[in-house]
Design a protein around this nucleic acid. Structure first.
Length: 523
RNA sequence: GCCCCGGUAGCAUAAUUGGAUAAUGCAACGGUUUUCUAAACCGUAGAUUCCAGGUUCGAGUCCUGGUCGGGGCGCCA
């Protein structure tokens, strides 16, 4: 309905700037600020303009609303009619959730993409939970989504990894070698070394062994966390690809590259970067940025209409560079969306530590999942905006795990189920008109927002709105449940109330599964 | 020094992207169960939205300056 109002107003008043939003309680179901924005623009009196707008709306939506009115503040408020609400409820019961129509796009969603140099950290977990749910939502609304993980399997960090293992091997052999700070300090490196020693692997295979081992581990952690990828894309595949040559040739042809100190530079400063950047290092190897450019081009060549990246805030500089690169290469900028998530720090008592894989200072996703259930962990990340900085206190998380709001939502689901164990819903809703109570209509109103919320998130990527929504729906159900009896002497009423909670359960189930959470029948 | 993100109740966060009375969970206090699951419900208390200006019908949200915290400014990825 929200979109319908929006579309209608847009058509009627093409150059008006306005919003349709959910008002605070007591001001109807929807509201718009078009009246005073239009009044301002046309330098007209609000009182003169509003009636005309309302008249048009009333004509168009005579069935949907029982009241459309302008209030003192200038908002136009919409009150849904009982008939419309019941009609929508009927629709839900036939399991037809009508989503706003969209143009289906082929979307590449890249997330996590942690270096295969060790276990996933909580920062990676955040990206994993958020990306997974965003993908679910985009699919729900009708897009085709590929979940992609970019593996940085070449470059300096891989060499450091390999060298770290070699040193540990030497130490195992009783040699007294240095182990510098910049090497990977984690215990898993020692484990790798032990295994390599046992198997007697030759030194040239150490790199592949370590990468393989780490990747395997990463995949397993992600599966434990309920996250699956469609494509695992190796950076090394780009190395010999035509994309790299095309990029270099193109940039050269438009004179955006030059040589200096034995390296090949890209004139990023012409596009607003602080300084130029290296594409090919003086040792002849491509810099990571060259891979990034090639990767972007590669994604387009695979026919994606939209490419979404979810990156940690420590990459914010890369965002600029990537965007500049896309522009310089003449690729379509609007096909690239980059979302940054703020970092997750580690809190131990009063101390706050920055996670660092190399230093071995981190909590891994595995550690987390050993301490708290998967659903609690996922929800913890899903309820927060990407912009929120997180100081993660594992002890506190463990302690409060049983109080996590996720159980509030799941409990509503289970409660409904237990009613159905007493009395089954027979697939005939009966006379919906018997629904009269406030709690009942609050529930229906919340139900019909579901497609609107999903649509909203598919546009603004604010995944945490979904957990918010689920919480509200559960809240409205619990209130209803406490106040009104579902199974009663009154057969007709019992029937429609069963139908109502059936619809609630359907939508609750949808939100839970979109978030990748269990739908428990009992708790 | 420059760039990005944040500062909201004791704690952790929201606020539909400039809207109406700043919301939720945890923590605190009081109450509700012979009836479909009390992991619930009802109520009380708790906020100068970091500070100072500004923009306008309207600012937690935008602008300027400051302040505190996180991150980034490499021929590392």
């Amino acid at each position: 309905m929200k979109q319908q109002i929006q579309e209608f107003l847009k058509k009627e008043y093409p150059d008006a700037d306005f919003d349709v939003s959910y008002p605070p309680e007591g001001f109807g179901d929807y509201s718009t600020n078009i009246a005073f924005l239009l009044a301002k623009k046309q330098k007209e009196n609000l009182k003169k303009i509003a009636p005309g707008i309302i008249e048009g709306l009333e004509k168009k939506f005579s069935k949907e609303f029982r009241k459309i009115e302008v209030v003192k503040s200038g908002f136009i408020n919409f009150y849904l009619s009982k008939e419309y609400l019941l009609d929508q409820l009927g629709g839900f019961l036939k399991s037809k959730i009508k989503f706003p129509k969209i143009k289906s796009q082929k979307i590449n969603l890249e997330f996590v993409s942690a270096n295969p140099t060790g276990p996933l950290t909580l920062g990676n977990a955040r990206s994993a939970a958020y990306g997974d749910v965003l993908a679910n939502i985009l699919e729900k609304i009708g897009h085709k989504v590929i979940r992609e993980y970019y593996i940085n399997d070449i470059g300096n960090q891989v060499d450091v990894l390999t060298e770290s293992i070699k040193r540990r091997l030497q130490q195992l052999g009783g040699e007294n070698v240095e182990f510098p700070e910049e090497f990977y300090q984690g215990d898993y490196i020692i484990e790798f070394a032990k295994e390599i020693k046992e198997k007697g692997l030759p030194s040239e295979l150490i790199k592949e062994f370590a990468l393989g081992k780490n990747l395997e581990h990463i995949k397993k952690s992600l599966i434990d966390f309920g996250v699956k990828f469609d494509v695992w894309f190796r950076e090394s595949n780009l190395k010999e690809s035509e994309e790299v040559d095309e990029i270099l040739n193109y940039l050269e042809s438009v004179k955006l590259t030059y040589k200096k100190d034995g390296a090949l530079w890209f004139k990023g400063s012409q596009f607003g970067l602080d300084k130029d950047v290296v594409l090919i290092k003086s040792n002849g190897q491509g810099a990571y940025l060259l891979s990034d450019f090639a990767y972007a081009k590669n994604k387009l060549s695979r026919g994606f209409d939209l490419n979404i990246y979810i990156l940690g805030a420590d990459h914010h500089n890369d965002v600029k560079r990537l965007k500049v690169g896309v522009r310089a290469l003449g690729l379509k900028e609007e096909k690239f969306v980059i979302l940054l998530h703020q970092l997750v720090a580690l809190k131990k008592g009063e101390e706050i530590l920055r996670m660092a894989k190399r230093k071995g200072v981190y909590v891994s996703l595995d550690d987390l999942l050993k301490q708290i259930p998967k659903d609690v962990a996922r929800y913890f990340f899903l309820e927060k905006s990407l912009d929120a900085h997180l100081d993660f206190d594992l002890e506190l998380a463990k302690e409060q795990s049983s109080k996590n709001p996720v159980y509030y939502i799941q409990y509503a689901f289970a409660r409904i189920n237990s009613v159905f164990e007493k009395l089954k819903y027979t697939k005939t809703p009966g006379d919906l008109g018997l629904l009269k109570e406030k709690e009942e209509f609050d529930l229906i109103q919340q139900l019909i927002r579901f497609p609107e919320i999903i649509f909203g998130i598919s546009k603004n990527y604010q995944v945490h709105h979904l957990s918010q929504y689920a919480l509200e729906l559960a809240n409205k159900f619990h209130k209803f449940y406490e106040k009104q009896r579902i199974i009663s002497e009154d057969e007709g009423l019992t029937k429609v109330r069963l139908a109502l909670i059936k619809a609630v359960q359907t939508i609750l189930g949808e939100t839970l599964s979109l978030m990748g959470l269990e739908t428990p029948k009992r708790m």
